[in-house]
């Protein structure tokens, strides 16, 4: 139980510190005076870790192939912003009893709301997609992601295609990494149990899994819901970090970004995927000037990787999973 205890402890510490720094949401704990640029990248990295780790439970551990993660992120982002931006006055008023902590209280609530809404969306996507496998599932989840985007685009109350600006920037380094540690802990401990062997069994062989009493339907939906919940949290954190969200920002290409992280990290390896998410965030920043070449390079990398090393660059790093996770 050692690593798990440590994780819980660090989450507690991170949350405590975030709480203490309430007054300065962008406070740069724990690295002292850190320049804003690095701070921003670290926050983005944390958000990407949440996205990648949560997609990994669907694509890696359960062996489904979702291409709609950005859709869940959008639900989380817009869902939380509904509380803190669109209806902020009313919400703050009803939290007046918290006194000075009302904005923080609202922020926490909005994070949860984002996560829960996204989880519901995950349920809505997971249920009809159950009969589908592989490429079909990929396209349907992609379709769902696009439907979510089109719906937001056509909803005036959410700012339509123009997007939503003026979201209070409350996401701090502590919050981001607190949630990402939480996601790592949750996915790691879910998978690493007798219960969690069910996810892996579904990935390896659905028919055998059913024959061994594993309810594959339940597992797939659970994976979708858990994945979507954390993607929603990531979206909420992102919205309150960047302050301005548009439907375009949650397009199919964002989903592909996350998929690339999961693939490079090695599907099914939580550690590998975490490292890949951090590394790719930094790489993206470094290559920001060369944006066009970056994507060409990624695409080539993806192709070459699949031909030569389908278990991912970092596959096998994972302690959470016995064996490597390159299987479909």
């Amino acid at each position: 139980m050692g690593p798990r205890f440590l994780l819980l402890l660090s989450i507690a510490a991170v949350s405590l510190v975030s709480f203490l720094f309430t007054g300065h949401p962008q406070a740069s704990w724990p690295l002292g005076q850190m320049d804003d640029y690095l701070l921003n990248i670290l926050i983005l990295a944390g958000i990407n870790v949440i996205l990648a780790v949560s997609l990994n439970i669907v694509n890696g551990h359960t062996g489904q192939f979702s291409l709609g993660h950005a859709g869940f992120m959008a639900v989380g982002a817009y869902g939380s912003a509904t509380l803190t931006q669109i209806n902020s006055k009313a919400c703050l008023a009803s939290l007046a009893f918290l006194g000075n902590a009302a904005p923080l209280g609202l922020f926490v609530l909005s994070l949860l709301a984002g996560g829960v809404l996204a989880a519901l969306a995950g349920l809505a996507v997971g249920l009809p997609s159950l009969r589908l496998k592989g490429d079909y599932l990929a396209i349907v989840t992609l379709g769902f992601g696009e439907i979510i985007r089109v719906m937001i685009q056509n909803t005036e109350a959410l700012g339509g295609a123009r997007g939503l600006a003026g979201i209070p920037s409350q996401t701090s380094l502590g919050w981001t990494w607190g949630v990402s540690l939480l996601s790592i802990y949750c996915v790691g401990s879910l998978v690493n149990s007798t219960y969690g062997r069910g996810f892996l069994a579904v990935r390896d062989d659905e028919i055998a899994a059913e024959a061994m009493g594993v309810n594959t339907t339940r597992y797939k939906v659970t994976a979708f819901v858990v994945g979507a919940f954390f993607a929603g949290l990531a979206g909420a954190l992102y919205a309150h970090f960047i302050g301005y969200i548009t439907p375009e920002g949650f397009s199919f290409l964002k989903s592909v970004d996350v998929v690339v992280m999961v693939i490079l990290g090695g599907m099914g390896s939580t550690a590998g995927v975490t490292v890949a998410a951090i590394a790719l965030t930094f790489l993206n920043e470094a290559l920001r000037e060369a944006e066009q070449y970056r994507m060409v390079a990624f695409a080539l990398l993806l192709i070459i990787l699949m031909i030569t090393r389908p278990q991912g660059l970092l596959g096998g790093l994972g302690r959470w999973l016995p064996g490597k996770g390159g299987k479909s």
Binding site: G63, F65, L67, G134, D135, A138, V256, V259, I263, Q292, Y293, M295, V296, F298, A299, L300, L301, L302, I303, M306, I307, P310, G326, K327, S328
Partner: peptide, 27 residues
């Protein structure tokens, strides 16, 4: 090169090819 590999590997490769055409096209 991927004929006998799991379908997922081929699918990911196809996504890679798709991105390659789009972004190389953009260039």
């Amino acid at each position: 090169p991927l004929r006998e590999r799991p379908r997922l590997t081929v699918l990911i490769t196809a996504i890679g090819v798709s991105l390659l055409l789009e972004y190389a096209g953009q260039l």
